[in-house]
Write a protein that binds this DNA or RNA. Structure first.
Lengths: 348, 348
DNA sequence: TGCCGATGCAGAAACGCCTTCTCGCCATTC
DNA sequence: GAATGGCGAGAAGGCGTTTCTGCATCGGCA
């Protein structure tokens, strides 16, 4: 028992530092440091003694100091808007998990997608010398990309390309085309697309693929655009699509949430049965898509896979800081459930 | 134009430091520091000049160094399991938003709820000298609470009391009682409770309140327990509840996801109509509860309010580091929709 | 048995970057 | 001419890492 004994715990209102551990273990400050650095030259006996002292004192290496010297921390920033919404909540969960598994520490900047807000987020992350920034929503302006490059901070953008940064994407256009093909192979030619007014590159690609493939086969596509790409947006799109005298026989929805809103609207306000009178295909395959009510045919976009690729891209970028922007494009595959008639001839 | 001119951007593979800003602005190092500290004695003109230089160079104060000196960072840790699931995704979103609004920077530790995992999360957060830790899932062991106290790091636990730390809670038991009262006032006496095998304090309180109130009025409650408190768990609970010859007339579900699973199971596998033959009440009021398919009567637990209270508690704790553990108990209120028959006499 | 060189380990010192404090100086201002 | 406010210079402090140097120990060889 030494002087800072157990009977005075109140006084210890601060973190213990390496000097205290050194004193307790009867070694030098640097020995403590070495004990915590893998591969450093310390004898096993001494390391053990130091670790015991550290454990007893509740010592924890100060990552702030460590990062100061290393000029980088293990913090990784995730910049995201509405992280609670649909697919994004799963992506955030998968990314935080993957990053922690990697030994990094995820910071989640929940903010808008305007340029100002993105720049503010970047400043915060620079301030903590974040190891990297991953952008899940919105498109970084080129100044953003440039500044990250200048500071040597990897920047990964999900769901956008052409930003000048590394990105992970999926084949939205291909999926859109495939959705059209599923409908067409069933003989359905009156098609609909349920999207949103505020179009993002992602949704535009899905729309383009779908419309192009439909046009190529002489099918017509009528468009419905809700306010947001969520449940209410789906209802609104449905209202538009099914208001006219010639409603579509099949609708491709920009994501699952929109599909749910659309389906519920159709069930309540029309007599159409799904999938007999109306085929619906969604996008994302969030867990709700498998719920019995919806039983939605949709395109699977596995958040864990996306997260793994983002992390892999980060590793690569750190290995080669100066190589040109890398682009990773993932494939999606359709998950067949009951909301769309699927032709026998069709192989996903 | 000085020597590190614009024609050699490649060389700037590092963060610019305060000395460089000082040199560029033609002022002293300390002036730069003063310019970035609110309330320090700098003339407006000089500050402006410094800010301009900082802007041009892309300078950002190193929060690692700042935190090292201050012995604390502005990082706040959120420890959470399955942050993508139901109510929790909304809570995480609300907390990150509230914290950022406050000027803090949220770290999200997505991990299990075992003691080991919680302790590992704590170590990480100590390492970065986090301003505070907020636990959303699981119960911190007493060593955890003690260590946080010793290190002077505020610790806030959501949804658990009796941990020795500050906590924010809701009146689960009262809500359970109210659910029972709604059913009873309708003359429904064959009641059911849909919960999970792995019981948490939160769910136990809801269950207790419900069962006690029912028992006090001579009603019987049969229990269904799914594996997890999610959709599949709700289906499983429904299977148990509706297997016997005397199914319940009304079921209180431990949360909305369970209610959805239960409702879907009932619709598919029984002929019972909701709410004519079966009343269902959920808990949380996540957005899906308002979807037309479910139109679920449920208890509202506003994530933004919960987050605001958590942040307020944090402010209070920082103002008075040594006051005894604080407990904040929020009320819930029932949101009446169509899944349960509501008696005319009933006032929420 | 005694000595040399090699080896491994420990301690001292410097470094990273910012904040804060103390002085001392200069230019205003009354 | 004295008082004030702004500013520069310099140094300390916070904490861990890394490099350098010195010392002890050990193996090997004569």
């Amino acid at each position: 028992m030494d002087s800072n004994g157990d009977d005075l715990p109140k006084k210890t209102q601060h973190y213990v530092s390496a000097v205290e551990v050194a004193r307790k273990a009867g070694v030098s400050r640097s020995a403590v440091s070495r004990a915590f650095t893998p591969g450093a030259s310390v004898s096993a006996k001494k390391r053990e003694k130091i670790m015991a002292a550290a454990e007893e004192l509740g010592y924890q290496v100060n990552d702030l100091a460590r990062g100061l010297l290393a000029r980088t921390s293990r913090l990784v920033g995730l910049v995201v808007t509405n992280p609670e919404l649909g697919y994004r909540s799963h992506l955030v969960a998968a990314l935080t998990k993957a990053l922690i598994h990697r030994g990094s520490v995820p910071i989640v900047i929940n903010t808008g997608r305007t340029e100002e807000e993105l720049v503010a987020a970047q400043k915060t992350l620079f301030g903590y010398r974040a190891e990297a920034t991953i952008i899940l929503s919105g498109s970084p302006p080129s100044s953003f990309v440039e500044l990250a490059r200048r500071n040597g901070q990897p920047l990964i953008v999900l769901g956008r390309s052409e930003t000048g940064a590394d990105d992970v994407n999926i084949d939205n256009e291909g999926a859109g085309r495939e959705a059209a093909r599923v409908f067409l192979a069933n003989g359905l030619t009156a098609l609909g697309f349920a999207g949103t007014v505020s179009r993002t590159p992602t949704t535009i690609e899905r729309e383009n693929g779908f419309c192009q493939e439909a046009a190529a086969h002489g099918a017509t596509v009528i468009m419905g655009h809700g306010g947001n790409s969520d449940y209410a947006g789906g209802q609104e799109a449905a209202r538009q699509l099914f208001a006219g005298s010639e409603p579509p026989q099949a609708v491709f929805c920009v994501n699952d949430l929109v599909a749910f809103g659309l389906i519920d609207h159709v069930r309540r306000h029309t007599s159409l049965r799904i999938p007999e009178d109306l085929s619906v295909i969604g996008f994302d395959d969030i867990p709700e898509a498998a719920w019995e009510t919806y039983n939605l045919t949709t395109f699977r976009q596995d958040p864990a896979v996306m997260a793994a690729h983002a992390v892999a891209l980060l590793d690569q970028r750190q290995a080669e800081p100066d190589c040109p922007p890398m682009h990773d494009r993932l494939n999606t595959h359709i998950v067949v459930r009951g909301s769309a008639r699927i032709p026998h001839s069709f192989k996903p």
